[in-house]
Design a protein around this nucleic acid. Sequence first.
RNA 1: GCCACCGUAGCUCAGUGGUAGAGCACUCCCUUGGUAAGGGAGAGGUCACGGGUUCAAGUCCCGUCGGUGGCUCCA
Length: 656
Amino acid sequence: MKITLPDGSVKEFDGPVSGGDVASSIGPRLAKAAIAAKVDGELTDLDRSIEADASVAIVTAKDDDVDALYVIRHSAAHVMAEAIQRIWPDAQLVYGPPVDMGFYYDIDLDDPISTDDFVRIEKEMAEIIASDRPFCRLELGSDEGRARLRDEGNVYKIDNAERALDGDGDASLSWYVTGEAGRDWEDLCRGPHVPSTGRIGAFKLTSVASSHWHGDVNQQRLQRVYGTAFATQKALDEHLERLEEARQRDHRVIGAKLGLFAIDEQVGQGLILWKPNGAFVRMQLEDFLKAKLLAAGYEIVYTPHIGKVDLYKTSGHYPYYSDSQFPPIKMHDDETEYILKPMNCPHHVKIYASEPRSYRDLPLRLAEFGTVYRFEQSGELTGMTRVRGFTQDDAHLFCTEDQVRKEFSDTVSLTQFVFNTFGFEDVQVRLSLREPGSDKYVGDPANWDRAERELREVLDEMQIDYETDLGEAAFYGPKVDFVVRDVIGRSWQLGTVQLDYNLPERFRLEYIGSDNQAHRPVMIHRAPFGSMERFMAILIEHYAGAFPMWLAPEQVRILPVSDKFMDYAEAVHAALRGSGIRAEVDQSAERVQAKIRAAQEMKVPYMLVVGGRDRDGGTVSVRCRTRADLGALPLEAFIEQAKREDQSHGEDRISV
RNA sequence: GCCACCGUAGCUCAGUGGUAGAGCACUCCCUUGGUAAGGGAGAGGUCACGGGUUCAAGUCCCGUCGGUGGCUCCA
């Protein structure tokens, strides 16, 4: 029998071997480090027999190996479940997979598990790990397995088993016993696991939350205990440190510290108050994009925050999303109703419809930073990322069928340009298509087919990597979303480009073609930032509050060495302001060291230390937030360079 | 919306049913200094809100509001 190793070498064995045997044949150290095997690309237990020629890779307990972490965390989930059942024998196990950064186990138990219980659970886990009991696989045929599950009486496991067996006549069921069958703890599980509990290097429980069976709110509510595990304590410590650092970058923490935004419960949940510093950054972002849009042939419009319900009935939004809107405002006649607009499109559609359009007018690109209101569930609200009132950098492009391709491709380029400008690298592109056979979509299926095909073709032409999500489309058309991860690893949708063959239909939009006949335009909805609130939140975390100079509300802080030089500091201040540079003077009675520290903490890009030497020479001593002391520069030269850095969006940096 | 946890000074947090605390920030005074915290003093509180138990509640119980982590949802 031939076993091919990852380096391409081939080892011969007589008869079946296990991954462990293969490891031993290579060397004792590898055998010792091995925790699982990957046979023809599939992870298996180290002691599973390999019956035929195969390529085999040995998985060792390494913290940078996703397979190793997968197996370790899966095993840790078992150990945690056993620990929980030791403490709460009534706990019914549901489902316990490894996930991105750790693992969880869903448990049905009436007693609430709280983080205070973690110490107890972790102690039991440590004991199970210290006893170093082997994970033993126990396989039963489907009938025998079902009988066993019936005896155990856990409906969740029976359900899991039926799903595993579904459509596979001769499938079997497997259990993993942590120790000796019939005596020690066991769990229905597909595996694989580490050879023994002692191989789980380091673990920690992280949080407890609620979940629902099958993710369905109408089903049994479960408790989900989250944890994480690594091969070594060092890696676990580093992971926890990274989490802590990420928390320091949290936009809610930095937003408060830098005076960017506030939320006030008297104003309302999920409603953002942009404070002067945050408002300034937002204004810069809007101006930046507006200039780009005007250059690309967009036109700016303004529309009201409310509209009659009827408008949204025509657009089709109202019946679909009535429970995620603020309730309608009823007028004095008790009949007319207005709603806070949940979307800008119907208003823009009405601008299109306000005059006759010729094919010569198309594409018509209407842009607006339009604030919309959606009644998100209270449990959903999070800082600036998930809110009830937000401003979309919205635009609607009305074009002919023939123009769709180019307009769509231009908007995708624009979105990419925006992400590049801010240095976002971890951006996933997601193409959302409709779910075949579902009736939740409106419009002609032929139009949908055409739209979906065109999106794919353009993305392919632009050589963009994307993943396809069936069933994630908007009800009116397919879309391309740009998804960015925040520092805590959560994914947020920012930019979006959506094709819409549907609204023009519902509003009976028309243009007169070169044939002098009426035709229906196609709409593209697009928002590169997505929402100003969410984009701002991600930007804060991305920069950890240290905005590049062109975005920073305070670009320069002048630090007089003592208040004897306050007059010179004020003169420098006036010169900077006169040149359009945003500067402040630190007037406190502190020493320079303290002033520097304060400015660094407030993430001011440049500090100008000024004292006697500078006053006499007409210079400023430049300190950069990231590059420390740069030395002295004549005031005029600093202003020149500062303006250049500002206007070039950081391409040209100040140097001395 | 659901579950768990949390809510004490502007911020970060201590606080055993028995007189409300610290550090930072703030104000004032001293210090007048050259690249990440000089020293001193002062001010700042309806312990989220409402009810209950108790001789006595920041502390225990119930409710409401708000926050956090998930679940579900996200045009």
